[in-house]
Simulated assay, not measured.
Amino acid sequence: MNMPWFRLRGPALDLDQLERRDQLLPPAALGTVPLREQRLVVLDVETSGLDLRKDIVLSIGAVVIAHGGIDLGDQFESTLLRPAQKISESVLIHGIAPSELEAGDDPVEALLDFMEFVGDSPILAFHAGFDQRMLTRALKQTLGYKLRHPFLDVAELAPMLCPDNRPRQNGLDDWCAHFGLQVMQRHHASADALATAELALILLSKAHRQGVDNLLTLSQRLANWRQRQQANFM
């Protein structure tokens, strides 16, 4: 059946892709499930640059924290998204050759695969605001899908939970070095997601020892911490 209005009103999705999109699970609210029982998706995206309006997602990698550990059997391997336009600068930023991008996955299929992997789980990332906004725009433009999943920022959790024992700088490399974590590769989505997950496990353990044992309490404490940080700069 020919239904040209699919293309006129939004992204060009076939019937199977539309059905997959419409069957994506809605996000679960942050609740009182104990942290050790909570499934968390730890995300990293590599992009063509840092401009939230113009740059695009080139690669997505994610791992899962569940049952108090990293489930290496449940991860989203770093996937290259084939861009609509040529991105020559990416080879300088991430070591991704333009030929690799041209041979990348169809963005529609890759993003559907990723959101099916996420399910209804909350998402963690380092400097989560950037990843969230880039992923939100990619999903809207490619799938016509509105991302509503809650994000927690590991770059905020770290100084909040370690106020008296922290590195001078607040980067992922700085925190990994601070806790003696070995990062095998950087600026690679899966490797960065794994490093972030290892750091997150340490922080969640610290949260538990500080009496924070679920995501609702953790997010409330984080909101209060943000307010205090803002007040200190006023």
Rank of each mutant, 00 (worst) to 15 (best):
F114T: 02
N214T: 02
A200K: 00
N165S: 14
L58K: 03
L35F: 08
K146F: 08
L201P: 02
G69R: 15
D173H: 06
D105K: 13
E198S: 11
E77F: 13
A223C: 05
Q75K: 10
R82L: 05
A84L: 06
A158F: 04
L24R: 01
G95K: 07
A177H: 12
D120M: 03
P26D: 11
S190G: 14
S121L: 01
D55L: 09
I65Y: 00
P150E: 14
G180W: 08
W5H: 15
L124M: 11
L25Q: 15
H94I: 08
I93M: 10
R209I: 08
L72C: 01
E89M: 10
G68T: 08
A200E: 00
A200I: 06
V64P: 02
L72Q: 04
L124K: 00
D174C: 04
G69S: 12
D74M: 11
L143T: 04
P11D: 07
Q210Y: 07
D55E: 07
L15A: 15
L15Y: 06
Q229T: 08
L13E: 02
A207Q: 04
Q132H: 13
V183H: 01
A110T: 11
H94W: 04
L161F: 07
E100W: 05
F233D: 12
G73L: 11
A207P: 03
F233V: 15
L112P: 01
F130L: 15
L35R: 07
N165G: 06
H178V: 09
L194I: 12
K140F: 07
Q132F: 05
P122M: 10
R82Y: 04
D44N: 13
P26K: 11
L139T: 06
F76M: 09
E109Q: 14
I87H: 07
V57I: 13
P163D: 09
L13V: 10
T196Y: 05
K86Y: 03
L157R: 00
L216Y: 05
D16R: 13
G61E: 05
A195H: 05
R209P: 00
P150N: 11
P11S: 13
A84K: 09
A189C: 09
A193L: 01
V41F: 04
T136H: 10
Q227Y: 02
N232V: 08
G68W: 06
L52A: 08
G104Y: 07
P107V: 11
R20P: 01
R20K: 14
S205A: 15
P83N: 14
R228C: 04
L172P: 04
A158T: 02
H187A: 05
L72S: 04
A193H: 00
D74T: 10
E116S: 12
R36K: 06
Q38T: 15
A128Y: 08
E102R: 12
K86Q: 10
L147K: 04
A223M: 10
R168W: 03
P98E: 12
F233C: 06
A103D: 10
R221D: 11
E89N: 15
L204R: 01
P27H: 13
C176V: 05
P163K: 12
Q210H: 10
